[in-house]
């Protein structure tokens, strides 16, 4: 059986759903962050697969950009988490329900 575009898309979709499930269910900020990365990667996979099956490199360029943005995002996000932890001594979303204090 040949591997077609749908195979990749299904893998990407399942991965995305897993990430989403993690984001909603988990309560540790860091794990939520990891799940976000997972979702981004799922999108990347879909883009690369599309690029391959459409014979067009633009999708891969997009992935390149996404990776860069994700790297910047991770850096800023983790810095925020560290700052938050310093102040509140927790990385648990249920303890972080108000903006002030």
């Amino acid at each position: 059986m040949d591997v077609t575009l749908e195979h990749y898309l299904v893998v990407s979709g399942v991965l995305f759903s897993l990430g989403l499930l993690g984001v909603i269910m988990r309560r540790n900020l860091l794990v939520i962050y990891m799940c976000l990365e997972l979702m981004l990667n799922a999108a990347n996979l879909a883009l690369v697969a599309m690029s391959r099956y459409n014979g067009n490199l633009d999708g891969q360029i997009m992935v390149f950009f996404i990776i860069t943005v994700a790297a910047a995002e991770v850096a800023v996000g983790l810095a925020l988490i560290v700052a938050l932890y310093r102040r509140r001594q927790t990385a648990h979303v249920e303890d972080l329900t108000s903006l002030k204090s």
Binding site: D2, T4, L5, V48, S51, R52, Y53, N54, G55, N56, L57, Q60
Partner: peptide
């Protein structure tokens, strides 16, 4: 609507 065969594009 998508082609079923992979192109020979090299990334």
């Amino acid at each position: 609507s998508v082609s079923r065969t992979a192109s020979d594009i090299e990334g």
